[in-house]
Amino acid sequence: MNQNDVPVIVIKDLSFSYDGHPVLEDVNLSIPKGDFVSVVGPNGGGKTTLLKLILGLLRPSRGQVQVFGVTPEEARSRIGYMPQHSQLDPQFPATVLDVALMGRLGHGRPFGRYSRKDKEIVWRALEQVGLHDLRKKAFSSISGGQRQRLFIARALACEPDLLLLDEPTANLDMVMEGDLYELLHTLNQWLTVVMVSHDLGFVSRVVKNVICVKRKVLMHATSEITGEIINEIYGSPMRMVRHNGEGSCNCFSS
């Protein structure tokens, strides 16, 4: 089988429960190489849990997860991960460059300083997200939007083949959100992207597939998403705005 034909993520008959409460049940998924997937669903529906199972930070109660055909632990060096930024200490004494360099850990020597090559890779990652000029700024002094981009740069510094992002658009205004999608769209040319989204503000031009998580997991092509599906996921009437490539938008309300 050709390397390109192996799906990036395969999940088989997976269930996960936390303290006896089922969080995810009977999940079957296959995400092909080069896909751009948005993971949506209500709060507490299991979106972040699904991401952590793919990363191997949580172990499934039943079933299995394969990333690049191996276990998540074995695949970790090929995964770039951007966590929800709200968990981290905003006052931590580090520069933008310091934080991005953390993405190079585990690549070179087990101890000592970062190599010249590490610095070159981080340099490029910061350029890609447009933070290169701010590299000497303190982490505590940059804005929320810049912080999101910095965590993407840190994930890119891992030189990943798969990018996992947990709510990259949280706390961003419309303009910044647009810029971020533009960046992810560019990265998607050579990376597989899976992102958790806090709302349904996904852009169909960028996102190819949508995974709906509410204990059960369903995958839809972006073009198939309708108001009924949204209703089913969230269990309450909800308005969806879909942007088409031409800039027009279709609004469904129910």
Partner: peptide, 20 residues
């Protein structure tokens, strides 16, 4: 010797774990 590792563990434990 382990400056980078200690800093990474202090800043973001989960990410450090993912970096091995």
């Amino acid at each position: 010797l382990f400056y980078n590792q200690f800093v990474a563990v202090c800043f973001d434990q989960e990410f450090a774990r993912l970096r091995g």
